[in-house]
Design a protein around this nucleic acid. Sequence first.
DNA 1: TATAGTGGTGGAAACGTTTCCATGAATATC
DNA 2: GATATTCATGGAAACGTTTCCACCACTATA
Lengths: 344, 344
Amino acid sequence: MAKEKPPKVTIVEVAERAGVSLGTVSRVLNNDIHVAPDTRERVVSVVRELGYVANRQARGLKGSKTNTIGILVPDLGTGYIGEIMHGVDAELALHQLDLMLFTTHRAATKEANYVANMVRGMVDGLLVVLPRNPADYVGTLSRRNFPFVLIDHQGTGSPCPSVGAMNWQGAYNATEHLIKLGHTRIGFITGSMDLGAAIERLGGYKAALKTYHVTEDPQLIYKGSFFQPEGYAGACALLDIEPPPTAIFASNDVMAMGAMDAVRSRGLRVPEDISILGFDDIPQAAVVRPALTTVRQPLREMGGLAAQMLIDKLKNPTTELGRTELPTELIVRASISPPKDRAG
Amino acid sequence: MAKEKPPKVTIVEVAERAGVSLGTVSRVLNNDIHVAPDTRERVVSVVRELGYVANRQARGLKGSKTNTIGILVPDLGTGYIGEIMHGVDAELALHQLDLMLFTTHRAATKEANYVANMVRGMVDGLLVVLPRNPADYVGTLSRRNFPFVLIDHQGTGSPCPSVGAMNWQGAYNATEHLIKLGHTRIGFITGSMDLGAAIERLGGYKAALKTYHVTEDPQLIYKGSFFQPEGYAGACALLDIEPPPTAIFASNDVMAMGAMDAVRSRGLRVPEDISILGFDDIPQAAVVRPALTTVRQPLREMGGLAAQMLIDKLKNPTTELGRTELPTELIVRASISPPKDRAG
DNA sequence: TATAGTGGTGGAAACGTTTCCATGAATATC
DNA sequence: GATATTCATGGAAACGTTTCCACCACTATA
């Protein structure tokens, strides 16, 4: 085994080699003004020669900033989270910040736990995607003036730094679209009702029905969970109702795809026999056949904006962050059409 | 603004409160054997009471380990990377390790750069997904005995710690399957030929043709890049050949989907007029219609295995890591059938 | 020419841990 | 009962930085 001693090159070695004090090297590295041009140049060349890179631990310890921000996500399975992270990452790259990723695996208890840990010197700021029970820690965080932004969370109660999409409006518009196509029996599959987004989407659906004087039938609302199997089960349940709905609006794309499978397994066609509508516009939505009509959430933009807000706060701790909602957009694809009785 | 002083509770405060020395507290925290049970208990209760959490920077600085491992990925857009990270994350969680995520945005130059930086005290080990030019740094890393594992990279030249899939075998089996269905003109769309995986897949395809005495037609091999537009373009080019292929084997699923679109846009049907085959088995493959027949790479398992290898190395630095290849599996779905002339 | 100001630099403290060494008490061995 | 061994603990050094303070050698100002 060729176990060489790792040639740990520290700031001290650089200082010796450049014939200056260690403090001067530090000043050069941090672009301090008070350094003579030729000294600076000498130090820089030694740094390059030795391949010196500052130890982040030490830097973080003293300076108490890490140039790293943390992101807490429920899991990594869905393209949904990936898109958000994409946006975050792009923004962070612009500012030379690094990203630390934590997964709660959907265990709500872990969330507060992680938050407590991260705050202790690991990261300068925190992004929480799809927070489960933020009430447990937002109080502490804002009291300590620790920078954080929640992503895709509906502020229940007091407003806090967060970025979301206009869920209510998106669901309203989509439902309206279906009604205008002639649908009057529209099934709805909800998300996990402990998430604000799910509540808002249901609210938008109901509001649109009311506006257009379509009677709301409680039977047509199926309680789902944002996972594919629930979409399947929900569609099955809805199709058993007499008369069955002519359209099904699922609270996210994953469930919409489950619903599609259910429809097909009954020998029915999408959209001829029944229209299917989703929410999110995940990458799969465009490639599924028939392509899924859905409400686009600007996930990447949401991630980017959240990162931007956090960076603002980092640079200027007195900034007060609020809630921002980005508009959603109805993306019409092949999975919907007028109801059969009208189409003919 | 209610800017409270963050009540930084350090190990010193815990020590005072528990009436022991700071060293003792550290021992308790690190589960050292030499601590009296009642002392331990007292310290633990104070820790809980004060909500003390060790500062990672300081811990890392002295102990020179961070309990964090780094993962370097080209980007986050595709489900492909997400699946691998999923596997990595699950394994890491078991060992209480944290994950630091770096994105190169497909810029090869950034890769070596990041590696150099990360090695300096930020992380204990390194995972590199789809390395572009590993030759630039594997030498340095292994000379320093710094733990790392490459994921989905074909060792060009000297073997190094890496996890991959049996690309050659997978492509061979898939091609064989097509041949046995009766196809003799099989188009092939390659990946980026600077990646080992692309080379191996092409090799498997060619080998199968040879085994079954199917003449290899250079016209039928289209140079692609692993991105969807190349799949579309490739299929268009292949369909223009006279006589056209009866099946197209794309080097990954994303290109296969591009190819499907191309076929459809020509008014042809999949699989009746032309069979389409992919590689990877990304989540979309199952939901596309017709569902895509593909070669499954065990991405999650690959991530998990890589993490496991890295952890082994961390625990026992003398371990020598080698290359492991996980088997691929042909997943037969609806996108292939016997060629038309035979089907009838 | 004396004095105040200024820019460049060295020295040292501090950040919050881990870990090694030393110490004294308690137990085991002869 | 004296010595050797073990165990729990305190004290202090070390990790690699940043940053504050002090110093010196200048250059302007009076």
